[in-house]
C-alpha cells in the first residue's frame, strides 16, 4: 500500500469527480452486460417461475376448496338418502304392522265363521239325528204299544187304519207333554 501511495505521488492530483474514459467505456459495457444477462435473459425466467408458482398455489387452494365443497355436497346427499331410507323403513314397518293386524283380524273372522258354521252344521246334524231318533222311537213305541194293547185287549186290531189313528193320537198327546218338558229344560 505504501508503494502504491508512493507510485501515485508522482502523478498529478486529479479531481475525483471527473471520470476517466476507460472507466466510462468499461462501466457502460459492464452495466450493459449485467442488464442484458440478468435483467433481460435471467429475470424473465424467474418471474415466469414465480408467477407459475403463485398460480400453482392459488390453483391448489382453489382445487382444495372445490374438493371440500364436493365432499360437503356428497355428505349432504348421503344424509338425505339415509333420512329417506329411515323414513322408508319406518313406513314399511307401519305397513307391515297394519297388514299383520289386518291378517290377524281376517283370520279371526274366518275362524269364527268356520266355528259358527261347524256349530250350525253340528246343530243341524243333531236336529236331524233327533228327528230320525224321534221317528224311529215313535215307530217302535207305536209297535210296542200296539202289540202291548193288543195283548191286553186280546183282540187283534186288524184294521191298519184304525190302529194307526189310535197310535198317532196317543203319541201326539205324549209329544205335547214332552215338548213342554223340553221347553222347560231350554229355559233353564
Amino acid at each position: 500500500m505504501h508503494l502504491v501511495v508512493m507510485a501515485a505521488a508522482a502523478q498529478s492530483e486529479t479531481n475525483p469527480l471527473i471520470p476517466s474514459a476507460t472507466e466510462l467505456v468499461m462501466g457502460l459495457i459492464g452495466f450493459v452486460v449485467v442488464f442484458g444477462g440478468l435483467g433481460k435473459i435471467l429475470l424473465p425466467r424467474i418471474q415466469k417461475t414465480l408467477a407459475e408458482r403463485t398460480d400453482l398455489i392459488e390453483g391448489g387452494l382453489h382445487r382444495a376448496d372445490e374438493a371440500q365443497a364436493e365432499a360437503t355436497k356428497v355428505l349432504e346427499q348421503y344424509r338425505e338418502q339415509l333420512r329417506e331410507a329411515r323414513q322408508e323403513a319406518a313406513r314399511l314397518r307401519e305397513e307391515a304392522k297394519e297388514q299383520g293386524a289386518q291378517i290377524i283380524a281376517e283370520m279371526r273372522e274366518q275362524a269364527q265363521a268356520e266355528a259358527s258354521r261347524l256349530v250350525e252344521s253340528a246343530h243341524a246334524q243333531i236336529d236331524a239325528d233327533r228327528q230320525q231318533a224321534l221317528g224311529t222311537l215313535r215307530r217302535q213305541v207305536g209297535d210296542l204299544a200296539t202289540e202291548l194293547a193288543g195283548r191286553i185287549v186280546g183282540e187283534s186290531l186288524a184294521d191298519e187304519a184304525r190302529q194307526s189313528r189310535v197310535v198317532d193320537r196317543f203319541l201326539d198327546e205324549l209329544e205335547s207333554t214332552g215338548d213342554q218338558a223340553t221347553q222347560l229344560r231350554a229355559g233353564r
Binding site: T22, E23, G37, L38, L42, R45, K48, L56
Partner: peptide, 25 residues
C-alpha cells in the same frame, strides 16, 4: 478498478445464471 468491475460483472451474471438459468417451481 476496471478489472474488479469486470469481475463483478462475471460474478453477478454467473451467480444469477446458476440461480435462474433453469428455474424450478
Amino acid at each position: 478498478p476496471e478489472l474488479l468491475m469486470a469481475i463483478c460483472v462475471v460474478v453477478i451474471v454467473g451467480f444469477f445464471w446458476v440461480a435462474f438459468a433453469k428455474p424450478k417451481l
